[in-house]
């Protein structure tokens, strides 16, 4: 009987450990390696969702991600920055995104009273760019100085995959994050 109880405890422990060791989570999320190759973001150097959440809280005092279940996708820790990708297949239910529409939807909107000077503080700090690289199109957007979050949205030219990427970074390391996005994108190729 004691053996049975011991087994049960071990079994429960394994299950808990399994949760702690999650490297990929989210609805219909694929490993990036299933869709593309990227020298910087390999399966072997991923960190777990738990570790990613701990790192996130070190970088950002008050993140919008409130718990581990908000940590969707896969994570890497590179040079003091947390990299996240969420890779999904484009389907009849999840359509290819019009990047130009999405660019407008993400950008700061300025509503001002007629006759007054519009406040363009947010717009002046904002960067957004759509470009074609390797075998994909990408929308990169972020606030240059005021944000801890730097985003990139990639769609392969064949219309099979979407990758939503985020670099979480301390504000003083913003330039490093902007360069890291370029490095990641330069080494990213979707599988044919």
């Amino acid at each position: 009987m004691k053996k049975f109880i011991l087994l049960l405890i071990i079994y429960t422990g394994i299950l808990s450990n399994n949760y702690a060791q999650t490297y990929l989570q989210g609805i219909e999320v694929l490993p990036l390696s299933d869709a593309a190759h990227c020298d910087l973001l390999t399966p072997s150097n991923r960190i777990t969702a738990d570790d990613a959440f701990l790192k996130l809280k070190q970088l950002i005092p008050d993140p919008v991600e409130e718990n581990i279940s908000d940590m969707v996708g896969e994570f890497w820790w590179i040079d003091g920055m947390l990299v996240n990708t969420v890779t999904r297949r484009i389907t009849a239910q999840r359509l290819k995104i019009n990047l130009y529409d999405r660019q407008k939807a993400k950008a700061p909107e300025i509503i001002y009273v007629t006759g007054t000077t519009p406040d363009r503080t947010l717009a002046n700090d904002y960067f957004s760019e759509i470009k074609s690289m390797n075998n994909f199109e990408v929308l990169v957007d972020y606030f240059k100085t005021r944000s801890n979050y730097k985003r990139f949205l990639v769609q392969d030219n064949k219309g099979k995959f979407i990758v939503m990427g985020t670099i979480y970074v301390k504000k003083q390391d913003a330039q490093k994050a902007h360069e890291l996005i370029d490095l990641i994108l330069n080494s990213l190729y979707f599988k044919q």
């Binding site: 407008k104 939807a105 950008a107 001002y112 363009r120 717009a123 957004s128 957007d141």
Partner: peptide
């Protein structure tokens, strides 16, 4: 009707006559 402006980078600006 107030016509909005596109400032680049997807930024839109439109007036409200309050």
């Amino acid at each position: 009707v107030d016509v909005g402006h596109e400032l680049g980078d997807g930024v839109h600006e439109v007036a409200s006559q309050e």
